[in-house]
Each structure stands twice: as C-alpha cells, then as structure tokens.
Amino acid sequence: MTTLDEFMTALTGDSVADAVAEGRCLAAPVGCGAPVFNADGSLRHSDPDDDPEQYVAEWRLTGLCADCQDAHEADEEKAVERHTWACNAYMAHLDLMADLMTGEGE
C-alpha cells in the first residue's frame, strides 16, 4: 500500500514531509510552494473567519496550504455539481425514452 506522502513524491517530486519540515505548501502542480506561515508565525490565509487550527492540521496531513486547500475544495464542489447535472440529464433522458416506449410521450 502506498502512503499519501509516497504518492505525492511520485507525482510531484516533492513530499508532504519535506513541505511540512520546510513550512511551505507542496510544489506545483498539486500545491503552490508558498510559505504556510507569515513572518510573525500566523497562518498565511486571507479569510479571518476560518479556523487556522483546522488548516494547519490539514496541512500537516496533505502538505497543502490554506489557499490550496480552499482551491481544491472548490474544484471538488464543481466536480460534484457537474456529476449531479450529468446524472439528472441522464435520468431525464431515461424518463423520456420510457415515455416514448410506452406511448406516453406522444
């Protein structure tokens, strides 16, 4: 079984362990390579309403900074929306075909 760190290293040539040890995000194309913390030690992230502890915990697991975590989450939400749209369109197609086959669509 491959660990997340092994997978990321194989994919990007960068590792979660190295990114965390160096206080940065994973290198592109997965992350942005930017520092995770500001010079004063605070989390480098633009939304003050977010929980910095949650982002730091996630960064230690994934190697992704707060901004990259948000970007990947937005991408996942878009993928779910596209999947939902495709499923709904397919179901409508099946309903139409069933109506045509039973004569209800005439």
Results as ranks from 00 to 15, higher is better:
Q69T: 07
P35S: 10
G63N: 02
G31V: 00
A39S: 11
A89D: 14
G23C: 00
G31K: 00
P52C: 02
A71D: 09
A71F: 02
C68D: 09
G41C: 09
P35L: 06
S42F: 03
C65H: 06
N88S: 12
A74P: 08
A71L: 07
C25W: 02
V36Y: 01
D40E: 06
E81Q: 13
L26T: 00
E76R: 15
R82H: 11
L26G: 01
A74S: 14
P35Y: 03
C25Y: 01
R44G: 00
L64C: 02
S42P: 04
A89V: 14
A79D: 15
G41D: 06
D47E: 09
A86E: 15
L26Y: 01
T62A: 05
P52S: 07
P48C: 08
D47K: 07
A74C: 10
L61R: 13
A34R: 08
D40C: 04
E81P: 00
A89F: 11
A79G: 14
L64H: 01
V36T: 05
A79S: 12
S42V: 05
D51N: 11
E58Y: 08
A34W: 03
A57E: 12
Q69C: 04
R44D: 08
V80F: 13
W59T: 00
A79H: 09
A34M: 10
